[in-house]
Amino acid sequence: MPTAIETRALTKRFGNFVALHECDLAIEQGSVWGLLGPNGAGKSTLIRTLLGFLYPTSGDAYICGRHVVREQVATHRHVSYLPSSPRFFRTLTGRGILKFFTRLRADGDFALALKLARRLDLDLSRWVAFMSTGMRQKLAIAVAFANRAPVLVLDEPTENLDPNIRRIVVELVGEAQREGRTVLFSSHVLSEVEEVADHVAILNAGSVVHQQSLAELRYCHRIVAKAGTAAVAELRRLPQVVKLESDPLANVHLEVEGDLAHVLPQLASLQLSDVYIEATGLQAVYDRLHLPIGSREAS
């Protein structure tokens, strides 16, 4: 599969502050990537650098093979963007905004924009100045999806939206993927990411600290059991175990990766009791990688 978005050692500094540190990503065409990380992790900086709003301090980034700095206009022909907390020209109505943005793009489709607005239950006759934050977000969603750009970059697309509209946004992302479009979206709602993305990249302190296919994540499990010292020592030797914690009450918490069919016989051979197995989920991965933001100041 060709690459839709690629970054090579992408770095962005603001004075001494490293907002993005040697970020390497390769996002295949037609995939949906969730960008996760705590506030200030560098998600928006990465997105803003990809869109050419910020010039990288070093490194390169490409969208559909176009360099995001040297071929900015060509890049933007291939990408549609939804900002977090979007702002529009207050002198226009919702309809005027859709008309304006669809006319700016060769692939802009006003009819599609109107259809999306109806689906999002958006009052297009209202002036932007009198729109609520949620309405502006819906308008921005209609703008972002009203074209045929092969890459969609969505910065916290479900922010400020009610559950019904969140559902529609998730559906829209799924439809985009079925059309073969690539989607990169940042979010703090892990359940949404798990539902719609096929890959995740987790950023922390400006670095991509983890990349994972969500298909692989389905083979990650957390096991809680009571185990003796000998059993714990045996568990540590298992290659599938990625994390092991035990407490004074002889409870042991493990995270295992891979097909359970290979792990379960080995567990059965050990002296364990009160065994409980659950799917790990993105939350566990996220928690494992969460680091304090303060560790980012450049020396």
Binding site: R48, L51, G52, F53, Q72, V73, A74, H76, R77, V79, S80, Y81, P83, S85, P86, R87, F88, F89, R90, F101, L104, R105, A106, A140, V143
Partner: peptide
């Protein structure tokens, strides 16, 4: 200041 610049620059329009 109004925050409208980034949506403009995200379009295939040169700076």
């Amino acid at each position: 200041g109004r925050g409208t610049m980034e949506l403009l620059l995200a379009q295939p329009v040169p700076r």
